[in-house]
Structures are given as C-alpha cells and as structure tokens.
C-alpha cells in the first residue's frame, strides 16, 4: 500500500441522493489504496476554513481509480463541496485510517452490517469486500433511504430498514430491526451515531460476538499527529501510553471492547 498523500483530483460526478445528502465520485489513484471503512479528507477552497473534512469512503473502484463519497452537508465546508461539479478540481488527503477488518468474518459466518444515518455509506464498500453471508441493517430518519438499491444489489433480499418515523421497515432503530427480523449474526460491523454504537457494543457483549465499530470525532490533522480526535480505550493504548487512542489513525474502526464509548 502506498503512503498517505495530499493531491489535487477531479470530480467525476456529483448528484443529490436525498435532501442534504450528496453522492460525489472523485477520479484519483488514491482509490487503488483504499479499503472499506477508511476515509479521505477533503479541503474546502474557502481559506477561512482551513482544516480538511474527513469523509468516509462509500465505494472504491480500484480499476477505474475512482472513489465514491456519500456525505451530508453539515456546515460551510461540506456546503462548498456540494456545489462541485464534474470536472472541478478538489484537494484531498488520503487514504486515512484503519478500516473494517473484513477478513475477520470467516466464510461460514453471518455478518450483520449496521448503519445509522450518515454512518450508512461506508457499509457499502464493506458489503462488497465481505466474503460471507451478509445481513445489512440500515437506519434512517424517514423514507429517504439513500443507498438502499446499492445494498439490495449486494445482498438481494437481505437488506433490512429501520426508520425513526416508521415510514419504511421497522419503526425504531437498527437494533429494533435486527431483533424484529430474527437476525442472529456471528460478527457485527457498525457505523452510526454514538447511542447506536453503544447499543451495538452492549448487544455484542451479551451475545459474546465480535463487533467492529467505526467512531467519529472532531479532527484536525487526520494523520495522528495532533491528538485532537482521541477516544477512550479500555486498556493502556500502546502508542499513547494512556487510555486514549487516535480515531484518525488507530481507528476509526475499533473492536467494541477496546473502546469506552
């Protein structure tokens, strides 16, 4: 795997997927180094916004050299990105982070992929990279179930939806949908808001199974130098020598028992 680098790339396409949710494809050789659960950091052009914005990789087309990023407009930086069009240039830093260890799911296992809100996109590349039985459980606020068709294409008949307003699938969250559909996974992979990840961790401990959680934290450097984005660890972290790991470099994916969330 090549080293991390900052480069100027071209936007291949961008479209609106759901209100506030954008689907951007970027032509970049970084795609060749990218794996599921990793992220890149995009730089706004507006110089009043200095820091790059970490965005998870939804799909990495290694042959074509294209990254697909599905993100939510959350502030000034992402608002600027949403106006990019095919052919525009964009500076990005990548590939960052330790992603999902797809290899931990053996072929005989059933893996549950749990995603909530803007935590849903990285599960798509994971679904492609897993070589086992997959149950994809994704939670949304309402009927704007972005990426649903992409997941159906990966795991036909095994995509389960939860919505907060009950408009599609199970009314409730992904854990409600997991139980309602009688899914009994051997291993879990999850990305979503903190309360969801806490519930996933608790479930994994009760069931005695492995769960890999993708965490989020405010970042500055994205490469492990600034120690801005730490999470609390159960044991003394081998790098920091305190109970802190760096979400950007030691994570963002951690086994549930390693982290205090």
């Amino acid at each position: 795997m090549a080293g991390k680098r900052k480069e100027r790339a071209r936007v291949a396409s961008q479209r609106l997927l759901a209100p506030g949710i954008y689907d951007m494809r970027i032509a970049t050789d970084l795609a060749k180094d990218a794996g599921c659960g990793q992220f890149v950091a995009l730089y706004p052009k507006d110089k009043s916004t200095l820091l790059p914005r970490p965005i998870s990789i939804c799909e990495a087309d290694r042959q074509a050299g294209e990254l697909r990023l599905v993100y939510r407009v959350a502030g000034k930086g992402t608002a600027e990105f949403s106006h990019l069009q095919a052919g525009d240039s964009v500076d990005l830093l990548g590939v960052l982070g330790n992603g999902f260890p797809a290899g931990r799911a053996q072929r005989s296992m059933t893996a549950a992929l749990l995603g909530g809100g803007i935590g849903v996109p990285p599960l798509l590349e994971l679904a492609k990279e897993l070589d086992c039985d997959r149950r994809i459980v994704v939670g949304y606020r309402d009927s704007q179930c972005f990426l649903r068709e992409d997941f159906e294409a990966q795991a036909p008949g095994h995509v389960y939806i939860a919505t907060e307003d009950g408009s599609v699938g199970t009314k409730g969250n992904v854990m409600d949908a997991l139980r309602e559909n009688g899914i009994a996974p051997d291993i879990l992979f999850a990305c979503g808001p903190l309360p969801m990840l806490r519930a996933v961790k608790q479930y994994a401990i009760e069931q005695g199974i492995l769960a890999y959680l993708s965490l989020e934290e405010r970042m500055a450097c994205g490469v492990g130098a600034c120690l801005g984005c730490v999470c609390q660890t159960a044991g003394v972290d081998p790098h920091s020598h305190v109970h802190n790991a760096r979400v950007c470099t030691d994570g963002p994916v951690f086994e549930a028992r390693e982290v205090e969330i």
Binding site: K47, S48, L50, L51, R218, A220, C229, V230, H243
Partner: peptide, 19 residues
Amino acid sequence: PWAGNPTPRVAEVYGGMLN
C-alpha cells in the same frame, strides 16, 4: 504520561483553529 483533556479537543474558527 499525561492523558490530556476530554473531547472535543479541536474546533475550527475563521482563519484558524482552537485546540
């Protein structure tokens, strides 16, 4: 060893950042 402060530890501001 020092554990440092709780998160969030960083924030962007106009033309700069807070840590």
